[in-house]
């Protein structure tokens, strides 16, 4: 069976005055219909650039320089600008982190939802409005008809994110990319929004790529997880495997460094050092300078993702030792 989305060896680079920045450096993964893949990583790990590459939104000085992105078997990198535009918002949608800056402040939210329908389905004004109001209702906005005529600044952060979800899902996309959808929200509102995304994606059998730095959100939402570090996927497995048998030292370190809400601890485990500089291409493993397992070999040759169990991919020379 072919996958809904198949990304192979994606490379996205940025030209900077200081050299080439390898933001995404040979990333591969798949997403099936109805499945949620979480891409998790810290700032600069390349998770957002990966999603922008899929959406065809990487702009100068960035460029997708290698690999392929197969959506329903078709390589998105070969699409013309116009073909891409017809695809975005219809077959592939996105929810961004900041609902204030991703909505247009000078149009009503209703207009912004119906615009999608009028563009992609050529609906007339009345039909589009009808459908937009239904959609506002679906995303849990009370008084949908009134809210239809409001401007983004009149709504709270949680409401705006609901409007973003309405815009993203009104065309029933096959793939939804949610890029830090709840990072700007309070925890009680976050819980509402995550529940909503999960419910709607299930109903429409949407494939979801959830991009986040919050491992708690990953554990609640994901079926599969890809952990990114320095522009590469270092571990890729089912959500249970990632949390219960983490096999890359970075994944382990990240999990161990989280303060626990159910335990009292005297000290947190902390990874030494900081995230790598992507301008320098390293011979060896990008994580080696921060890794307590690292040996000479790790500094010399780059590890590749290798199977370490059923559907459990790890990019580490010492994966077996790490796993213990």
């Amino acid at each position: 069976m072919s996958h809904l989305l198949e990304v192979n060896h994606l490379q996205t680079h940025f030209k900077t005055p200081d050299g080439i920045l390898r933001a995404v450096n040979g990333v591969s993964f798949t997403v099936d219909a109805g499945e949620t893949l979480a891409i998790v990583g810290e700032s600069g790990s390349g998770k957002s650039v990966t999603s922008m590459s899929i959406l065809g939104l990487v702009s100068d000085p960035g460029k997708v320089v290698g690999g392929e992105i197969l959506f329903e078997g078709k390589n998105l990198l070969r699409l013309t600008k116009k073909e891409y535009r017809n695809m975005r918002g219809k077959a592939i949608s996105v929810i961004f982190q900041e609902p204030m800056t991703s909505l247009n402040p000078i149009f009503t939210v209703g207009f912004q939802i119906s615009e999608v329908l009028r563009t992609h389905y050529k609906l007339n004004r009345k039909a589009a409005k009808q459908r937009a109001i239904e959609m506002l209702d679906t995303v849990g906005i009370a008084n949908a008809e009134k809210v239809y005529a409001r401007y983004p600044h009149q709504l709270s952060g949680g409401m705006r994110q609901r409007v973003m979800i309405a815009i993203a899902l009104v065309c029933q996309p096959k793939l939804l990319i949610a890029d830090e959808p709840t990072t700007a929200l309070d925890v009680t509102i976050q819980a509402q929004i995550l529940e909503l995304i999960q419910k709607l994606a299930k109903e429409q059998n949407t494939g979801v790529i959830l991009i986040t730095h919050d491992l708690g959100v990953v554990a609640e939402m994901a079926d599969k997880v890809a952990v990114m570090y320095g522009g590469e996927i270092v571990e890729h497995a089912s959500v249970e495997q990632i949390f219960h048998r983490p096999s890359h030292p970075y994944t382990q370190g990240l999990l161990a460094s989280l303060p626990k809400i159910h335990e009292d601890e005297q000290r947190l485990y902390s990874l030494p050092g900081t995230v790598p500089n992507l301008l320098e291409s390293s011979e060896g493993c990008t994580f080696a300078p921060r890794c307590k397992f690292a040996s000479e070999a790790c500094l010399q040759s780059k590890p590749r993702l290798a199977l370490q169990g059923e559907q459990h991919w790890v990019s580490c020379l010492k994966a077996e030792e790490v796993r213990g």
């Binding site: 009680t188 819980a191 708690g216 990953v218 554990a219 609640e220 959500v239 249970e240 949390f243 809400i261």
Partner: peptide, 11 residues
């Protein structure tokens, strides 16, 4: 508030 915090454990 306590219940809304997502716990990093899928089980």
């Amino acid at each position: 508030l306590l219940q809304a915090v997502p716990i990093p454990d899928p089980s």
